[in-house]
Design a binder for these strands. Structure first.
Length: 879
RNA sequence: GCGGACGUGGCGAAAUCGGUAGACGCAGCAGACUUAAAAUCUGCCUCCCGUAUGGGAGUACGGGUUCGAGUCCCGUCGUCCGCACCA
């Protein structure tokens, strides 16, 4: 008997249509069952999906299908992060409107995603570039503004003078714009900011409660927020008309090691001091020109310029410190001024050595003597204070406390000399972008009324269609009519804000909108959002560990503050999946070659590649992230077209743990496809042998072989369920293989036994066990290979869909063995094993162990010191 | 520089309460079926000695704790990731 090969090209569209017709994945907000919200990071519509998407969405879909089978009301939506630069770049390059380009890409990618058989509720699809979406974003912007969560201030930005646009730090490469190649300038621009710093403390503290987030991500966020506890100290100034400078320090204990004060180049005192000092002014200009590019900062020498001002030491009016303008002091952290303690800070030490300033150690490690000094490495370790007057002998924390206490209670001009201050590295989130393809900032600038929010009834502020991209700059700004409006307040002519929002804003609340995307009047329905959120399982790339996730956490809090949500945290569970990587190939002339352009053979154990076009040798290079530039990409369409979606999905789950990179290989895909075909053959074989077996045909006393198969099936069921629950898909896959191996062996055995008398000779026991095991196999496979599972399900005679069938329950009685085999060690080396009853007592086990010939041999007649019996685990004989 | 993760067969990996190292898969080898090939099925597959029963070594390296260590502790080396003049 033989069965035709499984044909995914026929079967897959068929089942997708059935799911569609029955609206199986449509989610009802009124469904009373416990909710489960699983979400994968939505894609940017770049044109086509890539293997990274396939991996990401497959993982989410396994969870969604599994939870659905477990009886949850599952929300599993999809949308498009549809605003952004690439659409404008395409517009410039191909003279196509960003909207057309974007929606064409969405259409293509939607079809591609649908061909994967994802169990998504497509009725909730949203695109962030749709006014139906961004009108709510504009509404919230205004609400945030009224709640004091939005501010407008000047900030220094990277300005590309050719493209007329602001660049993010990562878009500045070697001091030049990534697109134009022009030298980037630092410009002061008035920008809109979300005051994320308002929540800095809460964003940090709440990380501890995100127990289902990877530690790695929590640590990264914590470092990004960068909380530090320190002291603001006022130093009186002499030698000019500026009375004092305030510095921020986290090491007030080292105050007696101070040897200078340094201020940032754009510090107001520096500007003031430069007024009568052209050399200083020139130095300051020079500092500002130094790029923000990482490399430049890394290599920059510590440089400074003595202002001539003297700072008075807070504990000694006779001790005067020189005040420098220094290139390594940042204006936007702390107060933009520091006191330098060279002995205990490497930067200060480098600076002191360059300018011949004193280096006085005031903290020494435990046990060091009075000569303790620092040469070219600052000492920032633990220790005790010395050379420090009243602090001598103090530990660092006590010294900090003592300094704070003294300076706090000491007043000058009616104010305390110092004040405790918690500082954060986190900055407010600048959201202004001088671009067209983004959400318009709903603000009108009026000469009389100032900044006026667009009235709610006038929302959305939509983008004009008639724009051109043939000249650099923001099309909104140069549009002939769009920005000119009457002031909503006084009716006089006014202009719209022409900046649009950072696209990170769009993606900071899409997960919230998914809970009720049909609601037109409000961004969210409180009754609905508060029930669906937080997202139970969020899955995406680790590259969003900081910005996207932090912005989303901010947004939830801001939405709560403005009544749009009742929660603080958007994502209860987070999983960051690894990348899809692939070998690289290069021809003799160094050209990158696509996997499809070469053939690999194995000769004498060594792999060798040749170029198909000319038979020339090809160098097999390192394994790297799939990228167009290295041509090591594989198109999901090709794979799905050749092998079907189930094969692609299954391969994405196999082998590598999901958080790690997975190497795409042709052999691996073949292997997955073989498994698809094997399951198909096996299920058909079993169906032929057993026919439909009803549950109540279960025998109470099974023969040994049938019982063993049942046990294997239920063990696989219990383990694989647990694996999926914990997102350990590679282990769940292994369970599937094991069950398939066991079922196949049993089926082959049964058929051989029956060969003499015919299929009807197979015992009822075995028929039952085979049918049950096949049923479980199909159900376990269903979340991973949903189309194949439906096809197999109907072969087994079920008339419903496996996608709407509850997850099977493992029979606990089948998970325990009556007899267990314990490994036996002698002095820690394994010498054999012993099989005993599961509940055998220690004495029985010991006797059985000592009777073993292998144990006797290994003991070699030595006296037995003790026997360690670890129940259910191991026995160790110590001799 | 700071912070974090990780080093297991030819390869991807299992073994996460300290208890049989290498489940499962890939590649490879041998065999069955076939005129032949593909597909499929069966067996072998960490290394060394041995025909074999068996023995020895083995989880980056060096120490330690323990009856017992891939797992815990100390040190070294290596790889990867994040942050980076944040006072």
């Amino acid at each position: 008997m033989s069965v035709e090969r499984y044909n995914p090209k026929e079967a897959e569209p068929k089942w997708r249509q059935v799911w569609d017709e029955r609206q199986l994945f449509r989610t009802d907000n009124a469904d009373p069952r416990p909710k489960y919200y699983v979400l994968e990071m939505f894609p940017y519509p770049s044109g086509r999906i890539h293997m990274g998407h396939v991996r990401n969405y497959t993982m989410g879909d396994v969870v969604a299908r599994y939870k659905r089978a477990k009886g949850f009301n599952v929300l599993h939506p999809m949308g498009w992060d549809a605003f952004g630069m690439p659409a404008e770049n395409a517009a410039m390059a191909n003279n196509v409107h960003p909207r057309e380009w974007t929606y064409a890409n969405i259409a293509t990618m939607r079809d591609q995603l649908k061909s994967m058989g994802l169990s998504l509720d497509w009725s909730r699809e949203i695109a962030t570039c749709d006014p139906a979406y961004y009108r709510h974003q504009q509404r919230m912007f205004i609400d945030f503004l009224k709640a004091g969560l939005v501010s407008r201030k000047t900030a220094r930005v990277n300005w590309d003078p050719v493209d007329h646009t602001v660049l993010a730090n990562e878009q500045v490469i070697d001091g030049r714009g990534w697109r134009s190649g022009a030298l980037v300038e630092q410009r002061e621009l008035t920008q809109w900011f979300f005051t994320i710093t308002r929540f800095a403390q809460d964003l940090e503290s709440a990380l501890d409660g995100l127990t289902r987030w990877p530690d790695k991500v929590r640590i990264m966020q914590k470092n990004w927020i960068g909380r530090s506890e320190g002291l603001l100290v006022r130093f009186a100034l002499e030698g000019g008309d500026i009375p004092e400078v305030q510095v921020y320090t986290t090491r007030p204990d080292t105050l007696f090691g101070a040897s200078f004060v340094a201020i940032a180049a754009d510090h107001p005192i520096a500007r003031k001091a430069a007024e009568g000092n052209p050399d200083l002014a020139a130095f300051i200009e020079d500092c500002k020109r130094t790029g923000t590019a990482q490399e430049i900062i890394d290599k920059a020498e510590k440089r400074g310029f003595d202002t001539g001002l003297k700072a008075v030491h807070p504990f000694d009016p006779n001790w005067k410190l020189p005040v420098y303008v220094a290139n390594f002091v940042l204006m936007d952290y702390g107060t933009g001024a520091i006191f330098g303690c060279p002995a205990h800070d490497q930067r200060d030490l480098d600076f002191a050595r360059a300018y011949g300033l004193p280096v006085k150690a005031v903290v020494r490690p435990e046990g060091a003597d009075d000569d303790f000094a620092v040469s070219d490495t600052a000492y920032d370790g633990d220790g005790r204070l010395f050379n420090s007057a009243f602090l001598d002998g103090f530990g660092i924390p006590e010294a900090k406390e003592e300094v704070a206490k003294r300076l706090e209670s000491h007043e000058r001009d009616g104010f305390p000399v110092a004040e405790r201050k918690v500082n954060y590295r986190l900055r407010d989130w600048g959201v202004s972008r001088q671009r067209y393809w983004g959400c318009p900032i709903p603000i009108i600038h009026c000469e009389s009324c100032g900044v006026v929010p667009v009235p709610e009834t006038d929302l959305p502020v939509t983008l004009p269609e008639d724009v051109s991209f043939d000249v650099p700059g923001n099309p909104l700004d140069r549009h002939p009519s769009w920005k000119h409006v009457a002031c909503p307040n006084c009716g006089k002519p006014a202009v719209r804000e022409t900046d649009t929002m950072d696209t990170f804003v769009d993606s900071s609340w899409y997960y919230a909108r998914f809970t009720d995307p049909f609601l037109e009047t409000e961004p969210t329905d409180r009754a609905v959002i508060d029930r669906w959120l937080p997202v139970d399982q969020y899955i995406g790339g680790v590259e969003h560990a900081i910005l996207h996730l932090l912005y989303s956490r901010f947004f939830m809090r801001a939405m709560r503050a403005t009544g749009h949500s009742g929660l603080d945290e958007p994502f209860a569970g987070l999983f960051t999946q690894g990348m899809v990587v692939h070998e690289t190939y290069r021809g003799a002339d160094g050209r990158w070659l696509q996997p499809s352009e070469i053939r690999i053979s194995t000769e004498g154990g060594a792999r060798r590649a040749i170029e198909l076009a000319n038979g020339a040798d090809v160098e097999i290079g390192s394994i790297e992230k799939m990228s167009k530039s290295k041509k090591n990409t594989v198109d999901p369409d090709d794979i799905i077209g050749t092998f079907g979606a189930d094969t692609a999905r299954f391969f994405m789950l196999s082998d590598s743990p999901p958080e790690r990179d997975v190497i795409w290989t042709e052999d691996g895909v073949q292997s997955s496809h073989r498994f698809v075909q094997r399951v198909w053959r096996l299920v058909n074989e079993v169906a032929t042998i057993t026919g439909i077996v009803k549950d109540d045909e279960a025998a109470t006393e099974l023969d040994a072989a049938s019982l063993a198969l049942r046990k294997a099936a239920h063990r696989a069921l219990a383990t694989a369920g647990d694996d999926i629950e914990r997102l350990r898909f590679n282990r769940a896959v292994a369970q599937l293989y094991e069950l398939t191996n066991a079922l196949q062996a049993a089926a082959v055995g049964a058929r051989q036994a029956a060969e003499t008398g015919g299929i009807e000779d197979i015992s009822a026991d075995m028929r039952f066990a085979l049918y049950e095991a096949a049923t479980i196999l199909v159900q376990l496979a269903a979340p991973m290979m949903p189309h194949l599972a439906e096809e197999c399900w109907s072969v087994l005679g079920y008339t419903n869909l496996v996608a709407e069938t509850p997850w099977p329950v493992a029979d606990d009685a089948l998970l325990v063995e009556d007899e267990i085999t314990l490994p036996v060690q002698v002095n820690g080396k394994r010498r054999g094993d012993v099989t005993v009853a599961r509940d055998a007592d220690t004495t029985t086990v010991e006797a059985a162990v000592l009777a073993l010939e292998a144990v006797q041999r290994a003991v070699e007649g030595r006296p037995i010191k003790k026997i360690i019996v670890v129940p259910q685990r191991i026995v160790n004989v110590v001799a």
